[in-house]
Amino acid sequence: MTKPIIEMKNIEKHFGSVIALSGVSLDLVPGECHCLLGDNGAGKSTLIKTMSGVYKPTAGEIYFEGKPLDLKDPRDSISIGIATVYQDLAMIPLMSVTRNFFMGNEPVKKIAGISFFDHKTANEITMAKMREMGINLRSPDQAVGTLSGGERQTVAIARAVHFGAKVLILDEPTSALGVRQTSNVLATVDKVRNQGIGVVLITHNVRHAMAVGDRFTVLNRGQTLGTAKRGEISAEELQYMMAGGQELAQLESSLGSTV
């Protein structure tokens, strides 16, 4: 097995008297899709926010490419190649696709000593990258608001990859999407993984996880319930672990089908 690109060891995070994470360990190797599963409040979001530098862990260590990592803010993580795509904060709807794509990383060209936004280059790169990802834009100045939810996620993923992400964290990319859009996003995840980028995919939908995941880690009440490889675990078992057993089983029998 290749060496992990990012390793989180016994991460704890307390918010005042609330213990959000109590000793979670997770590692990610390049080119894998590691699914992080868990019900609401399990600590998934807290964990990825510590990974992307939004929160500082109360205890525990993070290693990036074998070296200890100390993130002060989200910018630090972006600069070393940890990119996060948030579900609803990925894109700004009123701005064009190009402006969104290069937001914070605008290409410039100098005219008479003044740096100007190089719209031509930016538009060309955007169109090319979007075509690679299977999205055909009417024009690069089309507003992101006209894209579907799945396309927006794809633009955000393409952006992260273009700017050299080694680790891509996707926060519930499929939770608000329809069936076809979901499969498009999952196909994008597969493309990205094949380029050797480590993907952390957060979801509470077991079927989406089973579709692309190489490894699965289940969180419950701030603790890891274990990590399993693809093929070692069935969807039912994952579902059971996520929901914490018993109660769901009772509910399922009363509903007469699987939730």
Binding site: P74, I78, T84, Y86, L89, A90, M91, I92, P93, L94, M95, R99, F102, M103, G104, N105, E106, V108, I114, S115, F116, F117, R159
Partner: peptide, 20 residues
């Protein structure tokens, strides 16, 4: 300019902008 893009981004969605 680059700064102009930042002006749009700051007003469009300040959190999304600061995340990138």
């Amino acid at each position: 300019t680059k700064f102009g893009n930042w002006i749009f981004a700051s007003g469009g969605d300040a959190r999304a902008a600061s995340y990138v």
